[in-house]
Structures are given as structure tokens and as C-alpha cells.
Design a protein around this nucleic acid. Structure first.
Lengths: 146, 146
DNA sequence: TGAAATTAGTTGCATAACTAACTATATGTC
DNA sequence: GACATATAGTTAGTTATGCAACTAATTTCA
């Protein structure tokens, strides 16, 4: 095995463990400290609904990079907390449109502020070019594998 | 909220969802296609034991960026599959040294090859400088938050 | 030396992930 | 129109994660 290849295995560990876990934990902690009961996974669904309300579960799967059972259960839990409602589509009765409640709309500004603060903290000492490189690399990695 | 801040929230979604999920799924699929029954999380523990055998659970926590209960259960499952053994330390009876079995040693080459192939596939079109930038950014993000 | 604090690991509980198998609705084709 | 196929979503079973609370062993220090 070449040294270069071994570094790639190592890179896998780095990408999948270190930074994303640390950011996720910090954001979750910041939500909790602010008295917010939502998980970051639930937040990531709400994030896409704030950008565009009333999406089908399949659209949320595509946008959050999750599979269908994961979205089913995230929506189950969000519905229990009265943050979203499933509304049967009239055009296609297979489809549930997932729509925000007023309670969820009230969370938008405060939670996005917390996410921005968390990311600012995480990205201290990282410049814009480096951020653009990370985004671009991740986009290519995703495209290479899907 | 400034436009720049909003992009940071977006970056969070990108980092935590897109690339790492895609790589993890592909690697898991490649393991399964090769008839290997281990999960990528179990593999990541084995990876550190291949680098250095017989580490305490706490050392594995630090190296894999997982908390203690996660490691306890990963080791439980690896022990069920007879890939590791817990060996009580003689110097400090609180400590379990986690050691590889022959069965686990036999998995090293084939699984690391699969990981390298998967990463090569994922990183097609990404040059060395960009990889170094990603690693460096992730290291700083981790340091900023811990 | 003996009580307090620290460290290593486990257990319980909740949420989330993936796979496979399932139901129900819609579409396409003969 | 009817049967095959595809699509949207759910359910079941296993693994993994995070947090809090716990036990047991070790260290600190008064």
C-alpha cells in the first residue's frame, strides 16, 4: 500500500469524524442552552422548510441528504412537537406536503442566529477562500458518488 | 441577518450532510458488496487498532472522536463478532485494553484497500492542495470547538 | 490514613441512521 | 380497461449517537 493511499484512508476518518461531529455537538449544545428542545437533525429539516414552505417528504429527502425512513421519523417527531403538519396533496394522494406551523416559524430567526454564531466560532481563523475550497470539494465528492 | 452569515448556516448543512454521508454510504456499500459484515463505525475503531494494537477504550474515544458510551457499545459489538477482546490492565484495574484477534488482523488489508478505493473515487478531480486545505480547515474547526 | 475528587467504563433512555419489506397511489403499455 | 411498473411513504429490526446517572478503581491532599 502506498503512503499516499494510506493518507486517503486517514482522510476518510478526518472528514467523517472530527469536524462535523464537533460542530454538530456544539450547535446542539447551543440550542439546549437557549432552551430550545429541537435536535440539529430536526433543525436541518426546518431550515429547508424556512427556505421554502410545504415540501413533499421526497423533496426533503433530496435536500437534506437523508433516506425516506429517516425523513418519515423526523417528520413524526416534528409533528409530535407541533412544528410541522402533514397535508395530503390534492393532485397526488401518495404525497404528504410538509408545512410549517406558526411555532416553527417563530424559531427561524433565533435558531439561524445560533447556527451562524456557532459556525463563526467554528470557522475562526479560516478565511473565505478556504471555506470556498471546502464547499467546492464537498460538492465534487458528492457528485462523484451519486 | 447579513448575507454572509446566512451562507455560514448553509455551510453547516453542507459540511454535516452532503459529502460525509455520501462517502460513508459508499464505503458501507463497498464493504457489503465484498461480503464484509462490519459497519464503517466498527471499521474506524479497527483502523486505529491496526495502527497500534491494545489501546484503552479512552484512547479509542480520543482517536475516533467518539464519547465513552459509543465506544463501549462499539467494542461490545466487535467483541460479539470476535474481532476484538477486552483485556483487563494489570497496572490499573479500571482500564480495559482492547486488542485485535487474528480474525480482525485478517481484515486489515482488504478493508483498507476498499477504503482507499472509495476515497480515490470520491476525490476524483480534487487535487492535493485542496485535500490539504480541507484537512487543515477541519483541524482548525475541531481545535476551535474543543 | 482517610475522605474527596478524578478517571475508566457501563447502563438506561431518547433520537437518528440504514436496509429490507411493505401499502397505497399513479403511470404506462398492450 | 387491465396488468406491470414506478413512485411516495410507512414499518420493523439492527446499529450508532448523545446525555445523564451510575459503579468501581485510583489519585490527591489535608
Amino acid at each position: 500500500m502506498s503512503n499516499n493511499q494510506f493518507r486517503r484512508g486517514e482522510l476518510y476518518s478526518v472528514i467523517n469524524g472530527m469536524a462535523s461531529t464537533a460542530v454538530a455537538r456544539r450547535l446542539q449544545k447551543n440550542f439546549r442552552n437557549a432552551g430550545l428542545e429541537i435536535t440539529i437533525e430536526q433543525w436541518s429539516v426546518l431550515y429547508h422548510l424556512w427556505k421554502q414552505d410545504c415540501q413533499s417528504q421526497q423533496e426533503l429527502c433530496n435536500r437534506t441528504f437523508r433516506d425516506k425512513p429517516s425523513i418519515t421519523r423526523l417528520i413524526d417527531n416534528l409533528e409530535k412537537q407541533k412544528l410541522v403538519k402533514r397535508v395530503a396533496s390534492k393532485e397526488d394522494r401518495r404525497i404528504n406536503m410538509v408545512c410549517l406551523t406558526d411555532a416553527a416559524r417563530a424559531l427561524q430567526d433565533v435558531t439561524i442566529d445560533l447556527a451562524n454564531q456557532t459556525m463563526s466560532e467554528a470557522l475562526t481563523g479560516v478565511n473565505k477562500d478556504e471555506i470556498e475550497t471546502v464547499k467546492s470539494v464537498f460538492q465534487r465528492v458528492y457528485d462523484n458518488l451519486t
